[in-house]
């Protein structure tokens, strides 16, 4: 499913829902994105600065490129600190409650990708 630096096809075969994706990105228990990233979310008080801003992500990257970065960024940068949201490969000492569970479901990944694609500037 990986082609170059992208996963061109939807993981579910259907397009995601950008509004649901936005909620996931802002949710500190589910997406966790704002732990590390800032973005164009003026209402959110605490945003991280461990990673590039999500502003303009949809202009810099295609949906396929965004999808691979969500699924498993280690494919592009083995040392990345960004968690692989759709892979449990190589994880160690995972807490009992999280064992063998991906961070997000295929549907949720598609929702987040759809939302990131709307971040054009």
């Amino acid at each position: 499913m990986v082609a170059g630096d992208a996963i061109p096809g939807s993981l579910t075969g259907a397009p995601g829902d950008a509004a649901r994706g936005r909620a996931i990105v802002l949710d500190r228990q589910r997406g966790l994105c704002l732990l590390c990233h800032a973005g164009p979310f003026p209402e959110e008080r605490f945003q991280g600065d461990l990673a590039p801003s999500l502003a303009g992500a949809g202009a810099r990257l295609s949906e396929g490129q965004l999808r691979l970065r969500m699924v498993d960024g280690r494919r592009l940068n083995p040392d990345t600190i960004m968690p692989a949201y759709f892979s449990t490969e190589g994880l160690r000492h995972v807490g009992r409650a999280w064992q063998d569970r991906r961070l997000l479901t295929a549907e949720e990944i598609e929702d987040v990708v759809a939302f990131l694609a709307t971040l054009r500037d």
Binding site: I81, P83, A84, T88, H93, V94, G95, W98
Partner: peptide, 9 residues
């Protein structure tokens, strides 16, 4: 130095 957990940090 060992990466650990679901977040792999």
């Amino acid at each position: 130095r060992e990466r650990r957990g679901q977040l792999n940090l």
